[in-house]
Design a binder for these strands. Structure first.
Lengths: 244, 244
DNA sequence: CGAGTCGTTGATATCTTTCAATCCCTGTGG
DNA sequence: CCACAGGGATTGAAAGATATCAACGACTCG
């Protein structure tokens, strides 16, 4: 259940502390807070269903929201894993379009819900906020495209390699740590793989010494090798390239 | 080659006639036209490469632009097929981010290129234009998500069925015509399929009487059946469901 | 009429899914 | 402190669907 949390009249101050609202005028925050509330969700609580009209903009204060599209196989395709400090819903909100995905708490989560109508009104009255929101939606757009690129890779190993390399902090760092944003099965679902296939590829890479796995923490040891895999012609989890 | 086309000082008037600029003040159009030009591309001419900085907003006046991401297999994943009246580039342009895809003319094409810097400046000075652009990027975003949903379908038949049903004019029309926006191989690449698989599925559906194919024109005869396929558990181009 | 692009069709290999069993880790309660 | 339950991850074996390779056919354009 998403219970309404205690949230007194200092909601504007709370909002002002969020990175999302940095630089927003206080009078705007006050008006926004009129239609805002802090929600507390327990792990696996539903926040919204695909097709429902979106009533709020959501900013995750603490926790994780899993946005996903249900598939015929009784499986799901994860669209995004939204964690602390990030937001979602801007696009559908601006278009007053039904939600394109389900949203469920990946773990206990606190989030700010700003009423869609109120938010739209403020956006329509302040050029700066409008431009900032435009940029946020544009970023979402680019993220989607990168996800598309990754899951368009034909082989599972290439998908995983692309995903890992996406976390490369700088183009020349050959070794770096990654912490998976959620359960392995969710990351797998984001790459368009089953958890089994994801696990197999990961462990094949580990056996090769290209990465090391420690729970949900992965250390990339040989970025060059991973980069090669995304470029070369064929690398599968079973084929000669990764086996041995 | 993208040759500069003849474009005198009545560029603002030309722009005013495009749906894209409906309702934009004439003084804005005049300033935009200062950094704008009409490009003429022949089929297969390159407009831009993935990774290049995006110098313009593009509005297709006539023709077709194929936006795609190159894949290791020497194949490609089509991101969008932009035809007459539509635009692309807003998102990367606002973020001054490198182009996330290659862009090539799918056939002889005329398009308007508005300088990115000039465009950004106008957006930053006019709330209405900013809001309209925000909405356009949001629509792009939602389109991407729908494409993701379609190509996330596990079986090829489900992908094709979803794609066809996306063109359903109204939720209750069971029969309707579709004209493919480009070559079959490009549509296939947009669904994450090879042209061979796409062809097989299409012809299997034709043989079943669910659709009729006439070149790049497809007539959906039994929308209900297609809708079932996207919901049911298993439908492949080879399995018992579609074979026979 | 010939070249070339695009689409269809066939046969095969192989990778991913699927089903199933086991394992590991964590939190809980006796 | 230990046992147990439950979610999550790993690993194995099998089947099936799609990619791939290859050849052919259709249509367009010069």
């Amino acid at each position: 259940m998403n219970r309404l949390a205690i949230s007194p009249t200092r909601l504007p101050q709370t909002m002002a502390r969020l990175a999302y609202f940095q630089g927003w005028p206080m009078d705007v925050l006050v008006r926004l807070s009129a239609g805002a509330k802090v929600l507390s969700l327990e792990k696996n609580d539903w926040l919204g269903r695909k097709g429902d009209p979106l009533q709020s903009l959501y900013v995750v204060m603490d926790g994780l929201i899993r946005c996903f599209i249900p598939l015929p196989n009784n499986t799901e395709r994860v669209v995004s894993l939204v964690d602390t400090g990030h937001s979602f819903g801007e696009a559908s909100l601006m278009l007053q379009a039904p939600s394109p995905y389900h949203a469920v708490a990946g773990r206990d989560t606190r989030l700010l819900a700003v009423d869609a109508m109120v938010f739209r009104r403020e956006i329509g009255q302040n050029l700066n906020l409008c431009r900032q929101t435009l940029e946020r939606v544009a970023v979402t757009c680019m993220d989607n495209l990168r996800d598309t690129e990754i899951s368009a890779q034909r082989s599972s190993a290439q998908r995983v390699a692309s995903y890992l390399m996406q976390h490369q902090p700088s183009p020349d760092s050959q070794a770096f740590p990654i912490s998976l944003p959620g359960r392995k099965q969710d990351v797998a679902a984001k790459l368009g793989l089953t958890q089994e296939t994801f696990s197999r590829v990961l462990h094949a890479l580990d056996k090769q010494g290209v990465i090391q796995i420690t729970g949900s923490r992965i250390n990339v040891a040989d970025g060059r090798k991973l980069a090669e895999m995304t470029a070369k012609r064929q690398f599968s989890s079973q084929g000669t390239a990764l086996a041995n």
